[in-house]
Structure formats: structure tokens, C-alpha cells
Simulated scan of single mutants.
Amino acid sequence: MNVLDTAPDARVGIDVGGTWIKGALVNLETGAPAGEVLHLPTPAGGTVEAVADTLERLVGELGAPGTAAGVAIPSIVQQGVAWSAANMDHSWVGLDVQAHLGARLGLPVSVVNDADAAGIAEARYGAGKGRGGVVLVLTLGTGIGSALIVDGTLVPNFELGHLEVAGYKAESVASAVVREREGLGWDEYAERLQQYLSHVEFLFSPDLIIVGGGISACSNEYLPRLSLRTPVVPAVLQNAAGVVGAALQSAASRVGPLSLAV
């Protein structure tokens, strides 16, 4: 049974980033935010309590009291506990974030890795909708986030941005921020992305690769320059994917294991 068959129609989704914390009430039938996606600045330093204060404010502004919330964070997440902290304070590491935020917000809270949130949103509502097999979602931004979905089931914390390619960590040479910082033209950037994606394709043989992150808006500049056996398509949900995926994860966590089958 699809988990969404027994889930409420809407959940709060929150995406905690290094610069902005975004949130919305998400319609789980359509995968669309039910209203505006609100943005609040991420507190400097990204400490647990400062972020929790911002989440309280955000939930209040969304006007959805009592609604369960999903929170996507830039961390490896196992059973609600954070085991890394990208662009956040080290105090997150080892914390039961799910329990802590649940207590602070007074709501049922489900916590998920931010790339996993974007991945499950694209698989359920976006470019991967209706696709079986192995779907790989990559977000090109400050680093490279990744999510792997196999026949509708998420493989959590799939950190492919840390793969080594030609002696370098992949996200240190092929992220969107690196392209901007080094002033790379699209040909040169596509060459780096080609090398990375060819390596990923060889290791995992995906049936579909979805490229997201802010750079997906410019996909016509670099995707036509790639040559892979696997189809590579731009993400559909773009910057709302983390918010939508967090809400979806919240619904799934209340009724059973996450399945993305339509």
C-alpha cells in the first residue's frame, strides 16, 4: 500500500540550508506548496538552539498549529540522530535532532537528510514520477548532494559528493559553486561533470539521473554537452524540492516505511 493513502492531505515541510531556512505547508496529493514558500535567514553559526528558534518562528508564520512537520537538514541522519554537520555548528553531531525539535516545536517532527528530501520529492512528484528501477538524484550547489531511489524505496545518506575522481573529492571540482568561483565556461564545466557522472554511472548503473540544485535552471547550457548511456534530465521542483520532500518524509514516518510508488 502506498503510504500516502493513509496520510493527511497536508504537512509542514522545512528545509534548513546554510543561508536560508525555507518552509511551507505542502499538499501531499499534488506535491505543491499550499501557499507561499517562506524564507528566513539561517542564524549565523547555525547552532542548534538558534536554528530551533527560527523554526519556531517559521512554523508560527505558516499558521499550521498541530500539523506534523518534516525537517530536512544538511547532515547524515540515522534514526533521527545527526552524524555530520555541513555548514552548521558542530553541536548538531550526535544530537537526537528529531526528539529535540519535536520538543521545541511541540509537534511530531521527522528529520531527513536534505539531499534525500530533494530526491524523494523528485521521485514522487517531479522528473522521476512513475519511473521504476534505479533513480539517482544529484543536487549541484555549494557541494554535491545525492539521493538514490531503487524501485520506489530510498537508500538513505548516499553521499556521492565525496567520491574521489582523478584524485579530488568530486564536489571540490564539479559543484555549482566551484564553477562560479573558478569562472568556468560551460564547456569546461560540462567536461568536469562528464568525468564525475561517467564514474557514477560505472559504479551504480542508474536507469535515470536527475540533476537539481539552483544550476538546474541552466540545464540547457551543460546537459546537451554530456555523453552518457544513462538518460540525464533536469529536476522539476528546483528550490522547493527539499521543502516538499521533508513534508513527504513526515507523512511516511507516521504510517510506515517510505515508498514512492505512485
Score class of each variant (00 low, 15 high):
G130D: 14
V178F: 09
L105C: 07
I120V: 15
E159D: 13
S205K: 10
G102H: 09
R131Q: 15
G132F: 07
E122M: 14
Y196F: 14
A118T: 13
T142E: 05
F158N: 13
L107I: 01
L107K: 00
G183E: 06
V178D: 06
E171H: 14
H199G: 04
L136Q: 04
I209R: 03
G161W: 02
L138K: 09
G128V: 10
V155W: 06
F158Q: 06
L136T: 10
G161K: 00
V112P: 00
Y168Q: 15
R192H: 05
F158E: 03
N113F: 06
G152D: 09
D207Q: 10
H199A: 10
N113W: 05
L105H: 04
E201L: 04
R104S: 13
K129Y: 10
H162Y: 13
I149D: 04
W186H: 08
G130S: 10
V111N: 00
Y189S: 05
A166Q: 11
V200Q: 13
G102V: 07
S172Y: 14
G141K: 03
L163Q: 09
G130I: 10
V150P: 00
G130K: 08
A174F: 03
G145V: 04
F204H: 10
E171N: 11
E188T: 08
G132Y: 08
L107C: 05
S110Q: 07
G185I: 06
I209M: 11
N157V: 11
A166G: 08
L140R: 05
V137W: 06
A176M: 03
L154P: 04
E164S: 11
P156T: 12
H162L: 06
E201P: 03
G185E: 09
R131Y: 13
I209H: 04
V150D: 10
A103Q: 15
V135L: 15
Y196I: 03
L136P: 00
D114A: 10
L105N: 01
N157W: 09
H162A: 06
G126Q: 03
D187K: 11
L154G: 11
S146K: 07
V111L: 00
G141S: 14
G106H: 05
K169H: 10
V111H: 01
G141R: 03
L160N: 00
E171R: 01
G143H: 06
A123R: 15
Y196N: 00
G167P: 05
P156I: 12
P206N: 06
S146T: 14
Q194L: 02
H100I: 00
L105Q: 04
V135I: 12
E164L: 11
V112E: 13
G185H: 07
S172M: 12
L154D: 05
K129Q: 13
G145E: 06
D116P: 04
A127V: 10
E188N: 08
G126H: 12
G141P: 10
V112F: 00
E171D: 14
A170P: 02
F204M: 11
E191T: 13
H162T: 05
Q195W: 01
G102D: 12
R131H: 14
L140I: 12
L184K: 03
L148K: 08
D114L: 02
V165P: 01
L105A: 02
L154H: 03
Y125K: 13
D187E: 13
A166R: 11
D116E: 08
V134G: 01
G132A: 14
V178G: 02
A103E: 15
L148F: 07
S172P: 00
A127D: 00
Y168E: 15
S205E: 15
F202N: 08
